[in-house]
């Protein structure tokens, strides 16, 4: 199956907070919600941990390494420093969709 996003593509972490509605197991850090980054590469498909944690059938999802500019997240960061984080496909949208 071809991954939805390609290396170099700009994406945004969905600006949603589902944990406000109930107890969930999420692997997407709070500080990245709504932040735009660039796909570094697809790391493969893994069972969705959000279902695994509750022993539900867990569909496999593409996992991406996404590169963020530190300064876009923390204004006091040093110019040029970056942040590389594993984000599942269902947490990502094409950045243009929000522009």
């Amino acid at each position: 199956m071809t991954p939805r996003f390609a290396p170099g593509q700009r994406v945004r972490v969905r600006p949603v907070w589902p944990e406000a509605l109930g107890r969930l197991h999420l692997r997407t850090p709070h500080y990245l919600r709504g932040q735009a980054g660039v796909i570094e590469r697809c790391l493969g498909r893994f069972p969705n941990p959000e279902d695994l944690a509750f022993r539900r059938p867990a569909a496999e999802r593409d996992l991406y390494h996404v590169l963020f500019d530190q300064r876009a997240i923390w204004p006091e960061a040093a110019p040029g420093d970056t942040l590389l984080v594993e984000i599942f496909e269902h947490w990502l949208e094409a950045a243009d969709a929000q522009a």
Binding site: P29, L67, A78, P79, L83, V85, E86
Partner: peptide, 25 residues
């Protein structure tokens, strides 16, 4: 960079620090 400096690791500004947040698989 401040955390690194506390370990004695002072990197010049032209070296990019890439923090890898190991959050998933």
């Amino acid at each position: 960079r401040r955390v690194l400096a506390e370990w004695g690791t002072v990197l010049p500004p032209d070296v990019q620090v890439r923090v890898v947040d190991s959050t998933a698989e």
